[in-house]
Design a protein around this nucleic acid. Structure first.
Length: 416
RNA sequence: GCGAUCGUAGCUCAGUUGGUUAGAGCGCCGGUUUGUGGUACCGGAGGUCGGGGGUUCGAACCCCCUCGAUCGCCCCA
């Protein structure tokens, strides 16, 4: 009788080898850079009461009803696996009294969950790095976040082909005026729009602006622009953001079609976009969400943040080799296997990256060691009753080789 | 939720118009050779051809269903 091997959940992934190295490189780079900007590390729960997300997302149609991983716990309470970090951080800001630290700069990373159809660069469990500034109303906070994001992308070595697209949604008054103008404009052309966009006109008119359908393109090009509806304050805010970016040497392009569907987004909206990832080109995105914390029942609290998918960044980073082995210890005789274990332990304690080959066919052990492509090989043999031990340098350019040689010499000096 | 493409060994893939016992390379295991030596030679393990049903004398190959993967649409906090 055979049992069926369980399969992985759709949209989950097991990350291994060079992919995992690239993943780790992204996280390490993020951690290093966020310290330079004094963003404080936070660890957050993976799940929250469903209300944390459903309120923050404003009960938006598809997002809450279809795209979240929600379930009832044993007490009958609805819980949800976090689809993003922002809402949970806002909740913690309120429930943990983080107001005392405001303005507070926060950084975190980990898995997030969205019930979506998997495709290139899109999974149901994926991973994000995340940075937020809560309690800061000034455009300097937006600038600091963007400069940090820019530095991370550059230090990952993936800036080529990535552009920062920037827009402003204005304050609440600007945004509402623009929205009304857009609805009026598209309503006049309803019949000529794609079916999808006719549908969007009722549900989410701003989204018509980034429709991929060629039938919509002529109309989106001539659609009303936010610039004509910005209040003086909103204009001033955006001008300070762009001036700050220019001063810091961060390149950006204006993207008037870049929108956010949710009402609590104000002012700055931005995305770092690449042309190298097919349909999923956004690599890092965020904006200012001054209305969110009120939506969770808190006091008016300005805030701004961004998140980036680690897998997408890792795809741009490409394969990363695992660290080079400093030394392989090979026991070519069964009588030397214990000794080989002692030596490899000593090498590792001394800080050498070391592997042991002391099993399988005696004759093939050395060949197996060579295939590991180490910087050096230590061979322990015993022929005609005579013990030999040999340190064989192979790749002098590897820094750890010399260390391995010294530890080898010291080990046998001690045995005398 | 919709659409397109694809599922043959651990991995990458052959498999001719349907025709004997389904193959190769790599990897793994054992052996020969060599004996400071990875690239040679021999052998072995490993496959219900994703699963189920149908057509046929006969199906990896044709048809239907199903599961899974990939890419795109919708959505994108």
């Amino acid at each position: 009788m055979t049992i069926q091997t369980p399969q992985a959940i759709r949209g989950t992934q097991d990350i291994f080898g060079p992919d995992a190295e690239a993943f780790g490189f992204v996280v390490e780079t993020f951690e290093r850079v966020r310290r330079l900007y004094r963003f404080r590390r936070v660890e957050m729960p993976v799940f929250e009461k469903t209300a944390v997300f459903s309120r923050s997302l404003g009960e938006t149609t598809d997002v809450v009803s279809k795209e979240m991983y929600s379930f009832d716990d044993r007490g009958g309470e609805s819980l949800t696996l976090r689809p993003e970090f922002t809402a949970g951080l806002a909740r913690a800001y309120l429930t943990d009294g983080w107001q005392q630290y405001a303005p507070v700069k926060l950084a975190t990373h980990g898995p997030v969950f969205r019930y979506e159809r998997p495709q290139k660069g899109r999974y149901r469990q994926f991973h994000q790095i995340d940075a937020e500034v809560i309690g800061a109303a000034e455009p300097q906070a937006d600038v600091e976040l963007l400069v940090m994001a820019d530095q991370i992308i550059k230090e990952l070595g993936i800036a080529d082909g990535v552009t920062l697209q920037l827009n402003t949604l204005g304050d609440a008054a600007s945004r509402e005026a623009w929205r009304h103008a857009l609805i009026g404009y598209f309503r006049d052309h309803t019949a000529s729009l794609s079916e999808d966009s006719q549908d969007r006109l009722e549900r989410n008119p701003l989204r018509i602006l980034d429709s991929k359908d060629p039938r919509d393109k002529p109309f989106t090009a001539d659609a009303p622009r936010i610039d004509d509806f910005l209040t003086a304050e909103a204009q001033d805010f955006f001008a300070k953001v762009t001036a700050g970016l220019d001063a810091a040497g961060v390149e950006w392009t204006r993207s008037p079609a870049l929108v956010r569907g949710l009402d609590y987004y104000r002012h700055t909206a931005f995305e770092f976009v690449t042309d190298r990832l097919g349909a999923q080109g956004t690599v890092l995105g965020g904006g200012r969400y001054d209305g969110l914390i009120e939506a969770l029942g808190g006091p008016h609290t300005p805030a701004v943040g961004w998140a980036a998918g680690i897998e997408r960044l890792a795809m741009l980073v490409g394969d990363r080799a695992e660290p080079v082995l400093d030394v392989v210890v090979v026991a070519e005789s069964a009588d030397r296997e214990i000794e080989a274990q002692a030596l490899v332990a000593r090498l590792r304690r001394a800080g050498a990256i070391a592997e042991l080959v002391a099993s399988g066919s005696l004759r093939k052990r050395f060949d197996r060691a060579k295939k590991l492509n180490p910087a050096s090989i230590v061979s322990l043999d015993q022929r005609d009753g005579n013990k030999t031990q040999n340190f064989r340098p192979l790749r002098p350019e590897v820094a750890g080789m010399e260390l391995a040689g010294k530890v080898f010499a010291a080990f046998y000096a001690d045995m005398q």
